[in-house]
Design a protein around this nucleic acid. Structure first.
Lengths: 335, 335
DNA sequence: TTGAAAGCGTTACCAT
DNA sequence: ATGGTAACGCTTTCAA
């Protein structure tokens, strides 16, 4: 059965203080004899500390709350994997919560996590939250009164944040299309306010401008970052002169592929295509799909690193990670 | 700052007992007046209970450990989503741990979870564990001395387990192929011992036998359930007279598609294909891919339900969930 | 209808 | 070098 320090103390004929000191490897002045004896007893009886008691006494839980919009989305699940591996490496447990991309639920979950006594929070915000506008976002962010870091999103606030460089992503993708001779380039970015949607659009626009191309607002489309978003927008894009399309998420791209398949056509025969996220499935398609590759595992480990320092210091850190292009075969030179 | 019951009690001019009773909505004999007054104070000051203290006092943590082989694998991430949503619905937190498909790490993580004081464990075992053989598996399973349920795998032991019916999956898939006139049907199942690998194979064999077809051992292939597994096996399958292939995971199937694409051929032109898991991407391919559909969210919620009853009772439950076939276009009649 | 107090398993301060 | 004990914030039994 569950053994307590008190019992070990009794067995060893010492006080609980001594046991605690020894079992926690404190630099205290305890004789080597006692040390080995106590440790031996603990080991033999297979002692495990009661973490609720430890948390209560130390007022810390060794647990980090991780809030994400959708655990099963490929991007988020890779991120979670990176985060939880890094956290576990540092001796922390992760309490992973699904906000279901709903800002009210998200707020509720964060509150519960705080009450639960987590030491800190890694917040991967929902699009639903960001769609509420900056004021709402800021109010929410400011209401979190324990150490936390905003992951995969930007904020003007002076808070800890680590994000991938979406501007660069938008720029690189667009530049590749331009380099291949395209001038009528459509973009399908996230809905108004959605996480990273504006930044990717800005990168796209800057690339066009830098190359002396005009920015045609009729080539800018918006949708949720999912299958359906792409499925619907591709139907409108066909009304435009676009020869190339930059989808700001691979899922959208797949949705477009599906739409074309349904009418027995091949999306890639009609357009040069570039996606975002570099989902593993991109190399399975024919042609293989060029996509903006985000280093998700780096995003996760940086987020943990930043939170870790936030746990013991007051200054805020703002990290922006580079992205690259994984060039494959879905972009063809326009002739 | 953090408010405690003691402070609320002081503000309300009552005892902590009363506060506790009220805030926990106990059926106790407290006047309605006090009730509203106390609740009001708590609400206004935004009181949240300290869960470490609650856990310590009640000797339960309201958290469940969930161990999975790979958080970012589409199948597991859907399962995690279902589990954690269901758990949260029942007021539990989930401590999700990645075993990285390594049985030693898996054992270590389970031990940590126990010491952490979780109320129970949902174990989705690694293939690496099952590949060690039944004895090792049983020893490990028997060593877990808190309520737990084995998820997505079978065991001869008298323990709680909930799994999808892999025999049925194998049978249905094979029957569909047979119904379409195929007699030389290759199967790529998991490696020896891998979770559900034998059962799917048995379903395949039974379907062949039931239809009076001979079971050709040369058409049985084994591989890890991943991209590479399919990529490699498809090269060997081409040496056989097979006209149809049953991949026991969609990932394997994608690997085979990739192999064909690389040599400018289309897998679906050469074979009737059926996969397993019904990953969302299957409807994006051309042709869309037929696959064995497992009701993952049901698997998750059943697992939670079983664990929930296990928390308060001693009898063990063994649940097997039906699977269905999601018939699309990748299986063609042989003429 | 309400309160006092013991107890949950630790930690950490203060003695000795 | 070691021990006593308050404290952490809550639940629960027993009394009033």
């Amino acid at each position: 059965m569950k053994l307590t320090m008190r019992e070990i103390a009794k067995m060893a004929g010492v006080s609980v203080t001594t046991v605690s000191l020894v079992l926690n490897d404190k630099e205290a002045r305890i004789s080597q004899k006692q040390r080995t004896k106590i440790k031996e007893i603990a080991r033999k009886n297979n002692y495990v500390p009661n973490s609720s008691a430890v948390s209560l006494a130390k007022n810390e839980s060794n647990t980090i709350g991780v809030v994400v919009p959708n655990i099963s989305n490929p991007f988020y699940s890779s991120l979670i994997k990176a985060i939880s591996n890094e956290l576990s490496k540092r001796g922390y447990y992760s309490l992973i919560i699904n906000s279901n991309d709903n800002h009210e639920n998200e707020a509720k979950q964060v509150a519960k996590l705080v009450s639960r006594g987590v030491d800190g929070i890694l917040l991967v915000p929902s699009n639903d939250l960001y769609a509420q506008g900056t004021d709402k976002v800021n109010t929410f962010l400011n209401s979190i009164d324990i150490p936390f870091v905003l992951v995969n999103a930007d904020s003007d606030l002076d808070i800890n944040q680590v994000n991938l460089d979406s501007f660069e992503g938008g720029y690189l993708a667009t530049q590749l299309l331009i380099d291949n001779g395209h001038t009528d380039i459509a973009i399908v970015t996230g809905n108004k306010g959605f996480v990273n949607a504006e930044t990717r659009l800005l990168g796209y626009q800057k690339a066009l401008a830098d190359n002396g191309l005009t920015i045609d607002p009729n080539l800018v489309f918006r949708a949720p970052y999912d299958l359906n978003g792409g499925y619907e927008r591709i139907q409108q894009i066909q009304q435009t002169p676009a020869t190339a399309i930059f989808f700001c998420s691979d899922l959208m791209l797949y949705g477009a592929v599906k739409q074309f398949n349904e009418s027995k056509r091949n999306l890639f025969d009609h357009y040069s295509i570039i996606g975002y996220d570099d989902t593993f499935i991109n190399e399975i398609f024919n042609p293989t799909i060029t996509s903006v590759k985000q280093n998700v595992s780096q995003l996760g480990s940086e987020a943990v690193r930043v939170l870790y320092t936030a746990l013991s210091s007051k200054l805020t850190i703002n990290v922006k990670l580079d992205v690259t292009l994984n060039v494959r075969d879905s972009v063809k030179a326009l002739d």
